[in-house]
């Protein structure tokens, strides 16, 4: 479980430099960018906030994301 206070300051690394890059917390397992739709997995309580990782899931629908996210 990732603390809400610390999630609040997380942003999409791809979007935050230009816009807001706000993230939606999904099923306590994913962070989804509300702008570019990149999806960042949370593995072993560590959010993987790498643009390349977000890219891998960009075309996967939210409801199809595996819970928990697969290990690397």
């Amino acid at each position: 479980m990732v603390s809400q206070e610390l999630l609040d300051i997380l942003r999409c690394p791809n979007c935050v430099q230009e816009t807001e890059g706000l993230l939606e917390y999904h099923q306590e397992a994913w962070l989804i960018c509300t702008e570019c739709d990149r999806k960042y997995p949370i593995r072993q309580d560590i959010p993987v906030m790498l643009i390349d990782e977000g890219d891998k899931w960009v075309s996967t629908k939210k409801e199809d994301l595996p819970i928990p996210p697969p290990s690397k």
Partner: peptide
């Protein structure tokens, strides 16, 4: 897990 050049 983050990249120093693209901080999340």
């Amino acid at each position: 897990q983050a990249d120093a050049e693209n901080l999340p």
